[in-house]
Nucleic acid binder design. Structure first.
Lengths: 289, 289, 289
DNA sequence: ATAGGTTTTGTCAAGCTTTTGTACAT
DNA sequence: ATGTACAAAAGCTTGACAAAACCTAT
């Protein structure tokens, strides 16, 4: 975009789609814009002004009142740097600690993260990406099983710790299990935590659970949703028939990367645990009506 | 106890399937329920009331007369909190809670135990016997995989929670891993905790770890002891050659019931985790001299 | 989603699906919402309000009466996500619970913390700061003796529970005692726990212990380190002569804020228990060589 | 189980104010 | 370009109302 070019009000209006009158009104009422003036008194807008107008429009589109939108749009934008690079840095540090079996350091890093960020962001920006990374390295033969086991065990301990008491309360019940043969349960655990943060009650069966066993648990727990997850499609395909039967009695969702390629008429939750938790939340909300 | 959600009579009726009139009758006749009242006089039932109604229904289903059923349902559940008989009772309660997927109650029981007893005694008198019991029931086909998975997951979470940071300090280093193919890691975890309580530094790789991977980890960790464990003999036999090789470089111990029948010239730790931890402690102590 | 934006009632209504009239009714009747007002008197809702509305809807969907749902939704429950994980928040909650003598809630908070964080971080970011806070409030006369006693005894119980069996094992022995006249032992207790987490064996004599008594215990225990602690300098000064004598036979450390101003040729550990525990660990490690 | 009265809770209306985009005169 | 005016949309308060859910007592 053009850099330090100064725009007159007509041009700004054309670019932003906001009428000149309104631009002036925003300036007068909320001090949204701070144009310099030409010799003859014409307003000359800088690129900062352009950005503020765009921000203003975004906020308005979100439904904020003009006064509120303006307040946010004029707010000096900083912070970012920290918030955006911190997770990546934390992930690297975590990786370094875990790959040399330094559990204490890993815990220190996780402690700091838990103190500084929301659980959601830790899950989707540290834990899940880290798991992916480990998985890829594993495929490339760059990680030993021992390292992977160690890292997994440390993380599982932390996540299960955060999970304590996640079956209490009043929200909808969700029964979670990995498909038979599936050993990777941490993603599902992360999903469970994200759901918990949204008020669901979680019942967690963990890795490698036969479908009939899930059904048995469901009869006791009476869940509103049942989630069966797998990283590859194979475990889900093998169990397709049983899963369809399960879907007749319960609201079944298939989770994990493996769910993308399977078609058995159940909701698939393939993406980021936190986002998928949001989806399930809205689903549950509309259901409740 | 749990959250102070108070229900009105309609909701309690819906949840229990008992008509409001009957609920009021039970209250009037047997004082089964003790609802508080709203400002306007509506009954507000606590979770204790909910439980009493459920108990009442169970007793009625057993064929007791209403008066009898109510008498039993209102009786405060006597907890023989006697510390000496506690472990057995706690195990039973834990079992009951976990087999109906009641995680919150399981945690309460474990919390009380941790508050009242030493970790050693909890491990050797509650956790380990409980694991055995589950194993046996599993062999007799009395437990579903789901129940076993659920129970295991809850316990693993607690034990890993207690393990947090167990690699720090000054004691001898111990590297723990299950033999390749071995999936039962909780016994090994318990052993690790018992060792930790004696000052060892623990490095835990968990279930199903290839021996060469253990060796790789050992090169980094430089442990004073390496423990490889299995519940049956088979995984250890299959890996016998590699284990012998491992034993040439490290002080190797074989753990778990499977170790009893294997002969590869390593120290076998077949018994109770706590006792074996004591054995290893004296060994390490004499070593140090 | 959106940042610290303030919503007007229409937008909140659109987002939550609750009519403006009802939102106002909930505010009026249950004080569910606490909007700020614009200059002209329009309601401006924060994200906290949004969350309360969502919680309210969840509870309603569960079948609770509106009044009950609102009561639950207004009270920031511990179980609700990040409250439990962020140390600062946990400290506030703990404070709130203890200052109204709600022991059960305090225990719940501590349970969750123990599940979610490392003991180290709990000690240095919750327990110790909380003790400081109580101390300051006490000086300003804002806390009653009863509150302070209650809080102290609840915490002491928990910490002692964690301390169980901390004298066993292989690590260096540390004898801990408060100086004669010193009644504040919780900091020392926290220090002991941090040491224990690093593999030391702890022998704890508690508050107000005469120095010759410490010496007597030391003859039996044969500690590698003796730590005498006090919050103010006075108790240490009064006992200076005896302490010097003690330092001739044992490796003596002075702990607590009071140690800063005393000069008797012993290592002083004035800072955060966890950091000081780390210092002592490296000291012990180099010693061992 | 029914009858007759009460509480709770969502909804609506009337009358007035604030906010905000747009229009117009200078 | 500026300043004022204006009107539609959105909100505010007060008060009332009715259906659903509950109460007690017979």
């Amino acid at each position: 975009m053009s850099e330090s070019a100064l725009l007159r009000i007509g041009e700004l209006s054309k670019r932003s789609g906001v009428s000149p009158e309104l631009l002036r009104a925003w300036e007068r009422r909320y001090r949204l814009l701070e144009p310099t003036r030409s010799a003859g008194g014409l307003r000359l807008y800088s690129s900062a002004d352009v950005q503020r107008v765009q921000a203003m429009q975004r906020y308005l589109a979100e439904g904020l009142a003009a006064a509120e939108a303006a307040a946010l749009a004029t707010r000096p934008l900083v912070e970012d740097r920290d918030a955006s690079t911190a997770p990546a840095a934390a992930r690297r540090e975590l990786d370094a600690a875990l790959s040399v079996f330094d559990e204490a350091r890993a815990h220190r890093i996780l402690d700091e993260l838990l103190g500084a960020a929301t659980l959601d962001s830790i899950l989707s920006e540290v834990v899940v990406p880290y798991l992916h990374e480990v998985g890829e390295r594993w495929e490339r033969g760059e990680t030993s099983v021992a390292q992977e086991h160690f890292a997994t065990s440390v993380l599982r301990g932390r996540l299960l710790g955060l999970a304590r008491g996640w079956d209490r309360g009043l929200g909808p019940r969700v029964l979670l299990a990995c498909a038979p043969g599936e050993r990777h349960d941490l993603g599902l655990l992360a999903f469970g935590l994200a759901l918990r943060a949204r008020g669901f009650r979680i019942f967690y069966l963990g890795a490698d659970t036969p479908v009939d066993s899930v059904a048995g648990a469901a009869r006791v727990v009476k869940p509103d949703f049942v989630v069966v997850s797998a990283v590859t499609a194979e475990p889900l395909r093998s169990a397709a028939r049983e899963l369809r039967e399960l879907a007749r009695h319960y609201r079944l969702c298939l989770g994990g990367a493996g769910a993308a390629e399977v078609e058995i008429g159940a909701l698939t939750l393939t993406g980021d645990p936190v986002e998928e938790a949001d989806r399930l939340t809205t689903l549950a909300r509309t259901d409740a009506r």
